[in-house]
Nucleic acid binder design. Structure first.
Lengths: 196, 196
DNA sequence: GTCTATAGGGGGATAGAC
DNA sequence: GTCTATCCCCCTATAGAC
C-alpha cells in the first residue's frame, strides 16, 4: 500500500497543465519545451523523466482536453429540450473566438498528420458529428426540420460553421465573425422549422 | 528606355513562386528561408537583395496569391445566372481539401496578427463577405431566398462553412468532410428556396 | 524525482567576394 | 544581382549530479 495518498508529485501534472494552456495559446509547433518548463516551474529532468518528449507530453495533455471538451459538449443535449432546441443550444455555446477551438486550431499544423496525435483529435470530431447527426434525425422525426435534409450533411455543416467561424474571427482579429456565423446558422434552422 | 525587355532577372520571381507554394504547403512559420532557397534555386544573397527578409517576401507572395484568389472567386458570379445559382456555383468551386485554403490556413499562426501580413489576408475575406452579402440580397429580391434571413449573417455563415470544411478535412485527413459540408449548405439553400 | 549543464541541429540574417 | 561563408540564437533532447 505504498501510494495511499496520491503521490502529490505535482510536477507531472504541472507540466500537463502548462502544456494544455500552451497548446491552446500557441499550438503544437510553436510551443517549445523551454516555455513549458518556464510556465510549469519544472526543470528539464522532470519533463523527460515523466514523458518521452514534447510529443508524448502533448498527447497526454490532448487526452485531458478531450475529456473536458466532451463533457462541455454533452451539456448541450439536455433531454428536457426538443432536438431542435438542443441544436440551437449547441450553436449558442459560449466560445473564445479569438483563441480558437482547442482542437480545431491544430488542423493546419504538421502535427495533425502525426499517427499518435491525429486519432486523439479526429475521434473527438467524429463524436461531435455522430451526436449531431442523431440530433438532426430526432428533430426531423419531431417534425421540426424538413426530411429532405441529409442528417450527416447537416451535422458536418454545423460543425464546419463553428470551425470556420473561429478561423474568420482569428483572421479579422475580432469576436464578431464567429458570432455572426452562428447567428446565421440559428436563423436558418429556425426558418427551416417554420416550413416543415 | 533601359528596361525595354522586362529585366528577366528570374531569381526574384523564382523566390516569390517558391514562397507561394511553401505558404500553401507549410504555412508561414514552418516555411524556412533555407527551404525557399533550395526550392527556388536562389542563394541567400538574392533573397536579401530583393527583399528585407522572410516576412517581406511572404507579404509579396501573399499579394500575388490574393490577386489569383479574387480572380478565381469572381468567376463564380456569372451574370447570366440567377443570384441563387451564383451562390451554388460558389459552393461547388473545386477545392484542394487536404491542402486547405491558401489564406485561411494561416488563421491560427502568430503571423495572422502581424500588422503587415494581416491586412492582406483579412481584406480578401472582407471582399468575399461583401460580395456574398450582395448576392444573398439579390437572391432574396428575386424571391429565391426568404427575406427573414439577414444577408450578412448568411454570407459569413457560407464563408465559415468553406473554412470549417477545410479544417475538418485536414483533421480527418480526408477530402470528404469539406464535400459533405458543402453538400449540406447546398441542400439548405435549395430547401429554403422552395419555401419562399 | 528533480535539477543544471551541455550538445547537436536548424532558424533567420549579415558580410563580403565575384 | 548573385553567390558562399559565417554568426547568433533558440529548439529539442541527453548526461549526470543531487
Amino acid at each position: 500500500m505504498k501510494q495511499h495518498q496520491p503521490p502529490k508529485s505535482n510536477k507531472r501534472q504541472d507540466l500537463i497543465d502548462a502544456t494544455k494552456a500552451l497548446l491552446w495559446e500557441r499550438g503544437f509547433e510553436a510551443m517549445s519545451p523551454k516555455t513549458i518548463l518556464k510556465q510549469s516551474g519544472a526543470g528539464q529532468g522532470s519533463l523527460y523523466h515523466h514523458f518521452e518528449g514534447k510529443r508524448d507530453l502533448a498527447a497526454t495533455a490532448l487526452v485531458e482536453i478531450d475529456v473536458e471538451m466532451r463533457a462541455a459538449f454533452d451539456k448541450n443535449f439536455n433531454p428536457a429540450l426538443s432536438a431542435l432546441q438542443q441544436l440551437l443550444a449547441y450553436l449558442e455555446t459560449p466560445r473564445e473566438a479569438l483563441k480558437g477551438c482547442r482542437f480545431g486550431r491544430l488542423a493546419n499544423e504538421q502535427a495533425i498528420a502525426d499517427p499518435v496525435l491525429n486519432p486523439i483529435i479526429s475521434q473527438l470530431f467524429t463524436y461531435l458529428e455522430v451526436t449531431l447527426t442523431k440530433t438532426v434525425k430526432a428533430a426531423q422525426q419531431a417534425g421540426d426540420l424538413p426530411k429532405s435534409l441529409k442528417p450527416k450533411q447537416t451535422a458536418v455543416m454545423l460543425t464546419a460553421i463553428i470551425q470556420g467561424g473561429y478561423a474568420l474571427s482569428r483572421i479579422h482579429q475580432s469576436a464578431e465573425p464567429l458570432q455572426t456565423a452562428v447567428e446565421g446558422a440559428k436563423s436558418i434552422l429556425t426558418e427551416l422549422s417554420k416550413s416543415t
